[in-house]
Design a protein around this nucleic acid. Structure first.
Lengths: 173, 173
DNA sequence: TACATTTGTAAGTGATTACTCACTATTGTG
DNA sequence: CACAATAGTGAGTAATCACTTACAAATGTA
């Protein structure tokens, strides 16, 4: 991975997240990265290949988080960790999450398979705690962290910790 | 409002929602509506004007819903109605909601002002019910309905009613 | 009927799009 | 050093973009 290649990925992430994938031209990416436009196609084949490379790079860190959470055995601890997830997104991760959330609505790119392990772990946790409908509770939490992440990414609320506390209270945490 | 004008709006809504605003060309809209491309610019000035007209048309119904909810005086009834909101989106309203949710991520188009009356009503309701932190509770619910709507619009879950019940239980409804 | 206004079309416009190609510069390896 | 592979450039390409313009058809109104 050369320096110019990294610059392309960084610029692409920034522009795709800020302006949208479709509205960002490869020439804009090249200019922002300080390289010739042809280099993008040499390294990433086409615009879609560039997007995939950007997503792959961005998702490395996220996968580590997930793996850690899924390993948690204590059900209350697991639920707590998942609820905290959207409230602990770091500033430097904003762009990648903005991009992935925006792409959800691009019909062809949506893929739910990465959510499954987390949902399964959640369902097990609620089962252990004797909840009446563990599957529904898991879906519910998943819906919530989606909404919370959206809200935080678009207009970070001032009282995050109070909101998180109100939320945790609903699960006696 | 002529028939061709209506066709343009319908086609634009459909295509903007399915393919995205930036990736949908005015010529595609014209073809889909069965009109000449020039007519779009005659009636709506430019592509952005077309988008605004589409959104305005789509939002008429939504505003009626909101108005009804904000008038509700009983706090528990109000909270219940708001929680039900995303679960009661009609099939024929999917496209407009998909479009508005997708546009959220287009930085320049995001506007939170329409959310304020609802948030205020929610805060009052939680105050009446003696919740410790009504503002945080209102934010929390707002985050949730956002996530629920997203989830339902992208991949409608099978057990909506069970999820809604699990949710209502958290507020003793 | 007369005529102004609105609705609609077809064929353009220059700019920008994703992408290619012929070429040079740099680097790794025997 | 030799020389192949890789990295990088700059000037192309045809297609498509949002939008305009000149003109015709339909409609409202006196």
């Amino acid at each position: 991975m050369t320096e110019k290649q990294e610059n392309i990925l960084k610029s692409a992430l920034k522009l795709f997240a800020q302006e949208g994938y479709a509205s960002t031209s490869t020439s804009r990416v090249a200019k922002s990265a300080g390289v010739s436009e042809g280099l993008i196609f040499r390294h990433f084949k086409n615009k879609e290949g560039l997007l995939e490379a950007v997503l792959q790079m961005s998702m490395e860190a996220a996968k580590m988080h997930m793996a850690d959470i899924v390993m948690t055995t204590d059900p209350k601890e697991l639920i707590g960790k998942i609820l905290e997830l959207p409230f602990k997104i770091k500033e430097e991760e904003y762009e990648m999450w903005q991009l992935t959330y925006a792409l959800k609505w691009q019909t062809d790119s949506y893929d739910t398979s990465s959510q499954e392990p987390l949902k399964l772990a959640l369902r097990n946790a609620f089962e252990k705690l004797g909840y009446q409908n563990p599957a529904a509770e898991a879906e519910l939490i998943y819906m919530f962290i989606d909404g919370a992440a959206t809200s935080i990414l678009l207009h970070p609320p001032e009282h995050k910790s109070e909101i998180l506390n109100a939320l945790k209270a609903k699960y006696q945490l």
